[in-house]
């Protein structure tokens, strides 16, 4: 049975507050803060992108587990903001960590669930005996159109998982995927910003797929919410994961350790995988963790993990996700933010 052998996260240090965005667009900051349960979000520096964040998250994962990167047989990065339209992100990451050349590599894309897809596929390949270790990354430097509701949440971050056949720090006990064709959020070729269907992104999209996947996984594993120490759901904002958790019968206490969105924003493909890193930072041996991602388009991947005795000692070797989130941050104004995100049209 496959397990998580090592994990790591990366968050850029820049933050922008909801008030700073709202004041530019004449929006009401308190209602956004309350409505989305968001206070601030991370912003990448101009020299940071999906590839750089993936390399750093992976280096933390490798530091934690200490395996030889040459044994990694698959490198999969899930993202909707790969720096190149044509040229894999994974080749750069694989080369930087020293996993080349005997390695399979693909970039995944499925809106916000591309990172959990990578985990799902690595788990399958490990269980099938095709690879010894697989590297699964969820990373994004998401963009929301200026003035759009998404601009308050679209953030940057990465989570990396090394998955292998040993139990590692958390056994992967079960998984389930649930998906339909639901056009709630999309970006056409050559378009700079994504479009979304407003409230349609809620009930028929996020809530239907997360609950559909979660209920099927609970049934498959013959378990109930109270059997789990922690639960992690995709976090497009602060509100949705708490609400879906309540709908399913999970408590606030189960969700809170991995609930990063209020001060991180939505890191898209990195979102639920990063929530899982923060949960692994605090979990105890024997704890069971329930995780369900969500990607527009639309679908969810669900996982059940069980923490092993190896976790507490190993996790100390790299920075905790909450430390990356809460310490060493700098606040930027909207002008700096637009410059960093390439939103300003310059002279030829």
């Amino acid at each position: 049975m496959a397990g998580i052998i090592g994990y790591g996260a990366y968050i850029p240090r820049n933050r922008i507050k909801v008030e700073e965005i709202a004041k530019v667009w004449g929006a009401d900051a308190p209602s956004y803060k309350k409505g989305l349960m968001l206070r601030e979000k991370s912003v990448p520096s101009p020299d940071q992108d999906v590839i750089t964040m993936s390399v750093e998250a992976t280096r933390s994962a490798l530091t934690r587990c200490g395996i030889d990167a040459k044994k990694i047989g698959a490198v999969y990065i899930g993202s909707e903001s790969h720096p190149y339209a044509v040229k894999p992100s994974g080749t750069v990451v694989a080369e930087a960590i020293g996993a080349t050349p005997d390695c399979h590599c693909v970039d995944f894309e499925f809106a916000c669930k591309a990172g959990s897809e990578a985990m799902f596929v690595c788990m399958g390949l490990v269980d099938a005996g095709a690879i010894e270790y697989g590297l699964a990354i969820g990373a994004d430097t998401s963009q929301g159109a200026p003035g759009d509701a998404l601009e308050y949440s679209a953030a940057a971050g990465a989570a990396a998982y090394i998955i292998g056949k040993d139990d590692g720090v958390a056994k992967m006990l079960a998984t389930h995927s649930f998906m339909t064709d639901t056009p709630d959020f999309w970006r056409r070729e050559y378009m700079h910003y994504p479009r979304h269907a407003g409230r349609f992104t809620g009930e028929p999209a996020y809530f239907k797929h997360v609950t559909g996947c979660a209920n099927a996984l609970l049934e498959k594993t013959n378990s109930k919410p109270s059997d789990y120490a922690y639960a992690v759901f995709h976090q497009p904002n602060g509100k949705f994961p708490m609400r879906v958790g309540k709908m399913l019968g999970f408590t606030k206490e189960q969700i809170e350790p991995g609930w990063l969105a209020p001060t991180l924003g939505n890191t898209y493909s990195g979102s639920s995988p990063m929530g899982l890193t923060a949960t692994l930072d605090v979990a105890k041996p024997g704890d069971k963790i329930f995780m369900v991602s969500y990607g527009s388009g639309a679908g969810s991947d669900g996982f059940v993990f069980e923490v092993t005795d190896a976790l507490p000692k190993m996790r100390e070797k790299a920075p905790f996700t909450r430390t990356l989130l809460d310490e060493n941050k700098v606040y930027i104004d909207y002008g700096t933010y637009t410059k960093y995100r390439g939103k300003i049209r310059k002279g030829e």
């Binding site: 020299d47 590839i51 750089t52 750069v92 930087a96």
Partner: peptide
């Protein structure tokens, strides 16, 4: 040492990655 984008060759060119120093805090 941290892995960063060092420069790119304009909007259509390759992106060059490499190392930069960041303070240890």
């Amino acid at each position: 040492l941290e892995f960063r984008k060092v420069r790119d060759e304009g909007e259509a060119g390759i992106i060059c990655y490499g190392y930069k120093f960041v303070p240890v805090r």
